[in-house]
């Protein structure tokens, strides 16, 4: 049965009740009726339609959905790599439509990918320092700061000078998380960050994200279809196909 409801998502808040959710205190990102259609798509062929989500600082979120529901599209909109066709995204009170999105990406948010997306010809610390340089951070000893960040995500100092290709998947993902933290962003966006990792490593990585959210008051958004991840997060947003919207848990 086709549900004609416009909103194609449901959310589950494990911590707060419905009343609290309706009046969030610390919204860092707000998606308001965002729709996206590819340039070459037909007029009504939306990859994402009328999505409205709110994200608070200090919480960890999961965006869940089957293939083709627009998870990656939503991620590219949140991370400022694409712009909404309709609707808008508000970050920290400002619309992304009027922001310098390069600056937004290298100052306000950190992005972590499933395939880590580190530069293979660089060492672990060089990858992190590159991100600091892109941000224009003025730190005297950038390598020291990089090592500090690596230690924070569970990597020892001696990993700093290793080429990333000599690191395991879990280690590379830790480097990617350390890179995303290099300029202390307010929000971390992760696209299937544990998709290539074993269960044990997945749990360890998720622990890092939880710490970032709950101890450092960052907003962590994880795009996933892993049940393990969904069990860990504070809030789950389910994305459904645009014309097949149904309630989730």
């Amino acid at each position: 049965m086709v549900n004609k409801k416009k909103n194609n998502y449901v959310s589950k808040d494990k911590i707060r009740n419905n009343f609290e959710r309706k009046e969030p205190k610390n919204i860092i990102l707000s998606i308001k009726k965002a729709s996206y259609r590819y340039n070459d798509a037909e007029e009504n062929d939306y990859a994402l339609k009328d999505v409205s989500f709110d994200f608070e600082s200090g919480k960890i979120y999961a965006i869940r959905g089957r293939s083709g529901t627009g998870k990656t599209t939503l991620l590219s909109l949140i991370s400022g790599l694409e712009k909404c066709t309709e609707g808008e995204i508000i970050f920290d009170g400002k619309s992304l439509n009027g922001m310098n999105l390069d600056k937004y990406r290298n100052s306000d948010i950190g992005i972590v990918f499933q395939s880590y997306n580190l530069l293979p010809f660089m060492t672990a610390s060089e990858n992190i320092i590159l991100s600091m340089d892109a941000n224009g951070l003025k730190i005297k000893n950038k390598k020291e700061k990089a090592i500090e960040l690596m230690e924070k995500v569970g990597l020892k100092e001696n990993y700093a000078d290793r080429k990333v290709l000599r690191l395991s998947g879990g280690e590379q993902q830790r480097v990617a998380i350390a890179r995303s933290l290099s300029y202390n962003p307010k929000m971390i966006i992760a696209d299937e960050p544990t998709g290539n990792l074993d269960k044990q490593t997945e749990t360890e990585i998720l622990e890092i994200f939880k710490k970032l959210a709950h101890e450092e008051n960052k907003c962590v958004i994880i795009v996933t279809h892993s049940q393990n991840v969904c069990d860990t997060v504070d809030v789950i947003y389910d994305l459904k196909k645009v014309k097949d919207v149904s309630a989730s848990k």
């Binding site: 991370s79 790599l81 390069d102 600056k103 937004y104 990406r105 290298n106 100052s107 992005i111 990918f113 997306n117 580190l118 530069l119 590159l130 991100s131 892109a134 941000n135 890179r179």
Partner: peptide, 13 residues
């Protein structure tokens, strides 16, 4: 790939 990574971490075009 390098261009993609650099653009993603916020290096302008």
């Amino acid at each position: 790939y390098e261009i993609g990574v650099l653009r993603t971490i916020g290096i302008s075009k």
